Amino acid sequence: MIQGSLVAIVTPMHPDGRIDEAAFRKLIDWHIEQGTDAIVAVGTSGESATLDEKEHCEAISLVVEHVAGRLPVIAGTGANSTSEAIALTACAREAGADACLLVTPYYNKPTQEGLYQHHKAVAAAVDIPQILYNVPGRTAVDMLPETVARIAELDNVIGVKEATGKVERITQIRELCGPDFAIYSGDDATAREAILAGANGDISVTANIAPAAMHAMCAAALAGDRDKAAELDAPLAGLHQKLFLESNPIPVKWAVAEMGMIERGIRLPLTWFADRYHDELRAAMKHAGIL
Rank of each mutant, 00 (worst) to 15 (best):
A219L: 13
T139N: 00
N248H: 06
N156K: 11
G186V: 07
I39T: 03
D29I: 03
A223Y: 07
G224A: 01
A85T: 06
Y107V: 13
V148I: 14
E175M: 13
V122S: 01
Y184E: 01
V10K: 10
A90Q: 15
T50R: 03
P15K: 05
A207G: 08
G165Q: 07
E58K: 12
L196K: 04
A95L: 07
V122E: 02
E168F: 09
F244M: 09
K120V: 03
I131V: 15
E33F: 06
K286Q: 14
A230C: 06
E84L: 13
Y116N: 10
L236M: 14
V205A: 08
I151E: 04
I2C: 05
D20M: 05
K54Y: 11
A90T: 15
R25T: 10
Q241W: 10
C177V: 04
V256A: 00
G114I: 01
A38R: 11
R169P: 08
E65G: 11
E55T: 11
E146L: 06
A219G: 09
P136R: 06
D155R: 15
K166V: 06
A213K: 15
A197W: 06
R267W: 00
D279Q: 14
R226L: 05
L245A: 14
E33V: 05
K109T: 09
G43F: 02
M214W: 05
D98N: 15
T164C: 09
L236I: 09
F273E: 02
H119N: 12
P110V: 04
A140V: 08
D225K: 05
A284D: 03
P110Q: 06
E280N: 10
V40Q: 14
A140D: 14
G201D: 00
A194D: 15
V103P: 00
A23R: 11
Y106C: 00
V148W: 03
E65P: 09
Q3R: 15
S61N: 13
V64M: 10
L270R: 07
D227E: 14
A41Q: 13
I131Q: 02
H215P: 00
T147E: 01
N108F: 12
K120R: 15
E113H: 08
P72F: 02
I19N: 13
D127E: 12
A125R: 04
I173S: 01
L245G: 12
R267K: 12
T190Y: 07
A197L: 07
A85F: 03
E153N: 01
M259A: 12
H66L: 08
K26E: 14
G35R: 06
R169L: 09
N108S: 15
A199K: 04
V122D: 01
I262K: 03
G78P: 01
A197S: 11
